[in-house]
Write a protein that binds this DNA or RNA. Structure first.
Ligand code: MN
Ligand code: MN
Ligand code: ZN
Ligand code: ZN
Lengths: 156, 156
DNA sequence: ATAATATTGAGAATGATTATCATTTTCTAT
DNA sequence: ATAGAAAATGATAATCATTCTCAATATTAT
């Protein structure tokens, strides 16, 4: 909390950007927010605390946070940019349930290593990657099965 | 070519969809097109052959092709849906150059296997995944290096 | 305090995609 | 071949997240 604000403060002065109450408020809310928040979701919280804040400011701020290394952008496949806390966090990928949207953060060293090798095999130097594993969580699998049983039961 | 048209014809009749000259033309063009084509790009080609065709029809047709299993949707991270030929094709992922956009189709059995295991470890049944490896191709790395050398030369 | 510069909020604009709807086309049963 | 039901089409409007524009305001270094 304290440390992140310092990091961001340094980022601002390093770029001759200015410290404003809007930026401070948005940073506070972001740091307290749950993971994978979208600009709209963040804006909804922020405007309750200060209705005068415009949504463009929230969009702009999230971009700054990503540039400052405090946030990472993710996209679970719906083309809505979501942001997660990224300061001193180890890299991870995501496992997402197609049924309920539940996400799990995962990382596998073998996969990470093989990705690098695959890239090198084709003369590429890997800079980054996007990996999203989609599936059905335990709960959603149960529901799916029940529905199927029910349907066939009625049909025949 | 012949086979794909048959597949699509069966798909149409199975769903009580109709065979139209627009659909035939768009299918023809899609089958001849280069990989990873967007709706707009396909529309640009199609409208030269038949200027009366609307772009909505092209969008609708690509959705049908994906449903019929003839096309697969991909998104290289810019939130533009692209479609690639998918009939009897083995699964593959993509390696994309951040410098020039060049793509390479890749697949790694170890990665595929580990993805399944990671999902299972968290109680998920994997249905599909999106994996995009981003990097710099050999050419772009050379350019990048040259630019860097030049810059530092001038700065110091 | 001042001037230079950055930031803000409102609203317009964007760009890819989808929805709407009146008109036209296809298919199927006569 | 023909009529009638159903589906498809093309033009256009709508959507949605995001970015842009710009006049008004705030911050910062002097
Ligand atoms: Mn995450
Ligand atoms: Mn491909
Ligand atoms: Zn679930
Ligand atoms: Zn390249």
């Amino acid at each position: 909390m304290r440390e992140e604000k310092e990091i961001f403060g340094k980022y601002l002065s390093r770029h001759n950007f200015r410290d404003t109450p809007q930026r401070e408020l948005i940073l506070d809310v972001f740091l307290k927010s749950k993971e994978h928040i979208s600009a709209e979701e963040l804006y909804d919280i922020v405007k309750k605390l200060d209705p005068s804040i415009g949504q463009a400011t929230v969009y702009r701020m999230l971009k700054l946070l990503a540039e400052a290394g405090l946030a990472r952008e993710v996209d679970f496949g719906d083309c809505v940019k979501r942001y997660e806390y990224n300061y001193n966090q180890p890299h991870h990928d995501h496992l997402i349930c197609r049924g309920c949207g539940k996400t799990v953060e995962v990382v596998d060293d073998v996969i990470e290593e093989m990705q690098k090798r695959v890239a090198e095999k084709f003369g590429f130097e890997l800079t980054d990657h996007a990996m999203y594993l989609y599936g059905l969580c335990e709960n959603c699998r149960k529901k799916r099965t029940n529905k199927f049983v029910l349907t066939t039961y009625f049909v025949f």
